[in-house]
Design a binder for these strands. Structure first.
Lengths: 223, 223
DNA sequence: CCGGCATTTAGGGGTTACCCTGACATAACT
DNA sequence: AGTTATGTCAGGGTAACCCCTAAATGCCGG
């Protein structure tokens, strides 16, 4: 857009972090902070209004988070480059962010210099990724695909089938489940067969693994 | 120590956060930042050298974390007051921190004003706790006690008994377990009874809840 | 040194749960 | 009106579960 100054909008729900980022970026004469946002919603509004070259966005914000805001921002006509900041090296968030259209990914404890470099790189249109992030990419992609498949399968079940799946995984017997739901044990049998036909869960270990991966058992076990 | 100026040391592994904190604290004339540290180890050294009134410490730092550094600092002759900063409202860390000797606990997205107030309070010797943190305290204490009890119970079992417990919770039948461990299904029955006698797990749902709370199922379900 | 005590192993027999096949009712969508 | 999805239930054979009893091993202490 302009070859002289890189305009930046900061999005982070912590005022101290925004102060710190501004302090760092003031040391770079070719970078100017033209706006700030306290959450994803504000970030979208501010970016639409100010049209910066780069958005420096926190990964975890209340309300609309960094990933959702990134997706939203990519819908604009001339989308800004987006550089994601994250507190720790949580590579499991990398894939959906890149899918959402982020151009870079940086840990907050990186050197000040690294932030400035990253902003310049994404402003030029390059991607900025830490070493190691790329390695985690392939592994993570596979895991997410499989988890997404299972989630879809789970959602394809009817309400009753989902209840029976959860209760079987939690270890209840057919008759127990019938008593809890006020239906016959024989009816529970039928749901078991439908679940097997639909998503292939045959024996109890299959149920338990499936439920653990989708986090269905955590709620039941908390006191 | 002195009734005029509160001396502060900042400990956070993110330079941007330290910049931001300094910017906020410069607005308070009665507070002076006299030192900084990038991790728990440095924090201990710096505090021993400078003897500040208050240490503002990040919860999560590489190497020695905030909790460990807090414990360390409490060993000094005239220990500084310690104010813990945390990124999100993770109340589960509250109890060990207070045990370690922290005087206050503050989320980073709190208003700037709140940080200044908190520093003044802990400098006076008062405790600063967010509302809700105290409420979470009793609940958290109970949960920890119960979890510790269950962990002790689990460790009181023999190796074989632990194996059978995990496999039952994972959903395997007696004969399946026997085949996996090369023992008779009848032997598995015996272990079930012993587990019931020792820690009171009678039916499968008891096994599943127990195993979920101790995290025994997570490893099995990961692909 | 030997007699409890914990651990691992196993069988018999009664009760219960599981699996498969088949069936019917309602609502929704075609 | 016919198909599909969903919720409900039953019968009967096979398999698992539960309770009681009991053997062999190994270890620690009187």
């Amino acid at each position: 857009m302009d070859n002289d100054v890189i305009t930046v909008v900061l999005a982070d729900d912590h005022a101290v972090v925004r102060y710190g980022l501004k302090a760092v970026l003031q040391t770079a004469p070719d970078i100017t902070v033209i706006g700030e946002a306290r959450n994803g919603r504000e970030a979208v509004d501010t970016v639409m209004r100010l049209k910066p070259d780069v958005v420096v966005m926190d990964l975890s914000m209340d309300g609309m988070d960094g990933a959702a805001a990134t997706r939203e921002l990519q819908r604009l006509e001339s989308p800004a480059r987006i550089l994601i900041l994250t507190m720790h090296a949580e590579d499991e968030y990398l894939v959906p962010l890149l899918e959402a259209g982020a151009s870079g990914y940086l840990v907050k404890n990186a050197a000040d210099r690294e932030l400035v470099d990253a902003i310049r790189m994404v402003a030029r249109g390059d991607q900025y990724l830490r070493l190691g992030a790329v390695r985690a990419l392939a592994k993570e992609l596979k895991k997410r695909e499989h988890r997404a498949l299972e989630q879809t399968q789970y959602e394809s079940l009817s309400d009753r089938e989902r209840s029976i799946l959860r209760l079987i995984a939690a270890g209840y017997t057919g008759p127990d489940i019938g008593a809890q739901l006020n239906i016959s044990a024989k009816t529970v049998d039928t749901y078991k067969q439908r679940i097997q036909e639909k998503i292939g869960l045959a024996h109890r270990p299959d149920y338990v693994r499936f439920a653990v991966r989708l986090g269905l058992l955590d709620e039941e076990a908390r006191m």
